[in-house]
Nucleic acid binder design. Structure first.
Lengths: 218, 218
DNA sequence: AGGCTAGTGACAGCCACTGACAGTTGACAA
DNA sequence: TTGTCAACTGTCAGTGGCTGTCACTAGCCT
């Protein structure tokens, strides 16, 4: 058992490679079909047929249509969490969150490119935003990520999430701002990582001013 | 046409009343079944049968199972939006949002009670939080409400949402905090409106401290 | 009273998803 | 190499959410 996994990590057997190929092929086919003809207009049968496997096999790789559509973005979210964990301990919570998201972008692009064309990845954000069922699933997943981040932030500061509200509130604020940013970016014209970085920075900078009592003179 | 609607508003005809009754009956039956045996374990056929209508009729009243489950909460969200619109113009944006949510609670309770037992309404929050598909749909609806609120806040301050980021960011911060609050409340033991009010106030008060550079001495 | 139309039930069908079973194909040891 | 085991897959049948269609009933209006 141990040997099998260790070996697989070094040089995956034929079985593993085949599996990986099928998985990636399904992912690419799904995203390709979704972004061209639309998510709802695409049936699982079509995706399976495009990769020449049975529908049943598709469901062995993905829990459902949604998961296939959101898998790549899920990957980028994992990278963000990892980036946050890697931030130096001296940074303030929101500083660490900000840096993790701003600097993590490039590494994410690379990681994604290993599986699907980056272009497909970027377009999937637009697809999500304009597909109710998908947006719903995406928001739920993001909510789960937020929960994970709460723990990380609390640990960074040596606090207990159950007794001190600040870790949760800080993450909530950050998550809220990231959600608007994401929405505007995905719906806007410029679907590039540069645009995302700028929007993110601008919105995070706007947090304090938006909390002010008076907006006119602020 | 005009006459028909006006008349219906004053004294609904038999037809209208019948419709209303069926609608409410379906809603009650659905929530009752959902909260007792679970959302997924309940089929639309069951709900329809409980009210003694065909499955087809259920779908004529609700776009889907989800909508039936979230309809009551949607009602409370509408009340919140109305409460926000009613806030005096001199209040600062976040002040108005805070007051709207804290004071609107009672009116919401009354409005809900006219259709379903309040107890059922409160329990539905727990159901949502523990049902992935439902939570997803709920988050999407909440996101839409946030969009509506952005406009209201911007209008209060005489700003254009497209040029000034503050309305959107302020609402994003507020929405983020409300989401954590909701989650903790729904998952916690005390499912009362009092508990919700306290949690909300506590979390909103924690926003500034959570933005501080240093948490230890803050 | 009789015509109009909103609301309903019954039926057929699509699609996402699941369980069960059998066939095939890599992995690994004898 | 060969045989055995386990993993992976295809096929089939079935459930449940959801939609289109059509005929029929019942409230509404003149």
């Amino acid at each position: 058992m141990e040997t099998a996994e260790a070996t697989a990590a070094e040089r995956p057997g034929l079985r593993e490679r085949k599996k990986q190929r099928t998985h990636d092929a399904l992912l690419r086919a799904a995203l390709e079909l979704f972004t061209t003809q639309g998510y709802e207009a695409t049936t699982v049968d079509e995706i399976a047929e495009a990769v020449d496997v049975s529908q049943r096999t598709f469901f062995r790789y993905f829990a459902g249509k949604e998961e296939a559509a959101l898998a790549v973005i899920g990957l980028s979210q994992e990278h963000f969490v990892a980036a946050l964990r890697a931030r130096p301990a001296h940074e303030a919570p929101l500083e660490a969150l900000r840096n993790a998201v701003l600097e993590g972008w490039d590494a994410i692009g690379e990681a994604v490119a290993r599986i699907v064309p980056v272009d497909l990845y970027l377009r999937s954000y637009g697809m999500i935003e304009s597909t109710p069922a998908l947006l719903a699933a995406h928001l739920r997943r993001t909510d789960e990520v937020a929960r994970e981040i709460e723990e990380i932030v609390a640990e960074r500061e040596g606090l207990d999430v159950r007794t001190d509200p600040r870790p949760r509130v800080a993450v909530a604020v950050f998550a809220g701002v990231m959600r608007v940013t994401e929405r505007l970016w995905a719906m806007g014209g410029d679907l590039s990582m540069e645009a995302m970085r700028e929007l993110t920075a601008a919105h995070l900078d706007a947090v304090r001013p938006s909390l002010a009592e008076k907006w006119r003179n602020g």
